[in-house]
Design a protein around this nucleic acid. Structure first.
Lengths: 220, 220
DNA sequence: GCCTCGCATGTGTGATCACAATCCGGTATG
DNA sequence: CATACCGGATTGTGATCACACATGCGAGGC
């Protein structure tokens, strides 16, 4: 069964140029944790794997480094970021700040169909866990949150949040393989219950703990 | 007298390549309100004004559009963003979310020298108002806030905030010329007082009102 | 006088190239 | 056996070019 995917927020619309295809492709690889921290990339390599020259690859990389999805070494070499604990905690606290706010804004507009959709994504998330598939797990987990936040009608805030997700992508992948979850994240149920009850305070709390819980047990 | 300027947070350090010079130059022009909303730019024009070819200009523009400092029209034309009221309010609410948090984090580490520095920047801000100089006004105003937030030791959060400032740059310029302030922003005094008193709640409130006040009276 | 069509100009895009810096092998040396 | 060194291969950078397309101005028609 095909999971229902909510469209991403940042890249607004169609716009199919070569560098844009490369950008979206790389962005997805990073955000969904297909790359582990410290993975080295080369412009020529990126270009070849997307069937384009260096020029569009360079532009895509510029965009992604601007969003923190990739880092430049001093000599201009590009790689996925290796975050220290301090930075991870800071990014987690930003999530803990933004996500309850987005959830709260979405709450007023959340109708039953949305909750059903989230429920279905959450089941796909549980399947990914059973299948020990880290990429699917990360993807469906973010999908779950994004589906809610899209209802907040706050594109700028969602864009900022996706930037944070992007920075955490490779780290989340490394984290996942380290602790090998076997059960679904318990807070997703709480989020859904709070949504159904229309309880703002409970929703904020559930989102906050879901975010901090996932990243707390990390010792790099 | 030369105002004391706190270094920006995002572009970490030295790194002097051609595209980086262009990036920093454009970024400053946008953030400080040297460009009004809707100003059209061309890659060749940018390149010429910085003495480089199109290539570095293109990369700088990509970075800046990724941060929301510039927008692409459908045909790839680049211009400073023209924000609608909805977007302005959203960005203001993001500032109202992030800035009290950053201020609160800085409060614990704020010593007297920092407050003195902010006082001095605030005087420069008042001078810019008397001189009817919008760019200096915006620059010193942001400098005032950034000087405080740098103490929060939260580079990722400050980076996100600067992205928001960047998006608001041209709009703040347009706003400034519309309402022609004649007095210093009243909330800066409250911020300084809360800092001196070490009062977290008062500081959060003062920052929040300073941010929302400045952008509330805007009807585009 | 106003609108429409068409062409000249301007503009972004992507490919290619030359170049300098960096990295990474192996080899020689202590 | 470990370490320093050297040279070839790899990599990012910036310039330049050809091309397709959008834009806008001017001429012609209504």
């Amino acid at each position: 069964m095909q999971p229902i995917l909510a469209r991403s927020a940042l890249p607004d619309a169609p716009a199919q140029s070569a560098h844009d295809r490369v950008y979206r492709g790389l962005r997805q690889q990073v955000m969904h944790g297909e790359l582990t921290p410290g993975t080295a990339l080369t412009l020529r390599g990126i270009g070849k794997s997307f069937g384009v020259s260096m020029t569009p690859a360079r532009e895509a990389v510029r965009r992604l480094t601007a969003e923190g999805a990739l880092t430049f070494s001093a000599s201009g070499r590009v790689a996925t970021p290796e975050l220290n604990n301090e930075r991870i905690e800071e990014l987690a606290s930003i999530r803990a700040l933004l996500e309850p706010e987005l959830g709260s804004r979405a709450l007023r507009r959340a109708h039953l169909a949305l909750i059903d959709r989230m429920e279905s994504i959450n089941e796909a998330n549980a399947r990914a866990i059973r299948a020990q598939n880290p990429v699917d797990y990360i993807r469906t987990n973010l999908e779950f949150h994004r589906t809610l936040y899209l209802r907040a009608q706050s594109p700028a805030m969602l864009g900022l949040l996706e930037t944070v997700w992007l920075q955490l992508g490779p780290t989340m992948r490394a984290l996942y393989t380290r602790l090998r979850r076997t059960a679904a994240p318990p807070h997703h149920r709480l989020i859904l219950e709070a949504l159904r009850a229309g309880d703002d305070a409970a929703l904020r709390l559930a989102l906050r703990t879901d975010v901090t819980q996932g990243l707390r047990h990390l010792q790099v």
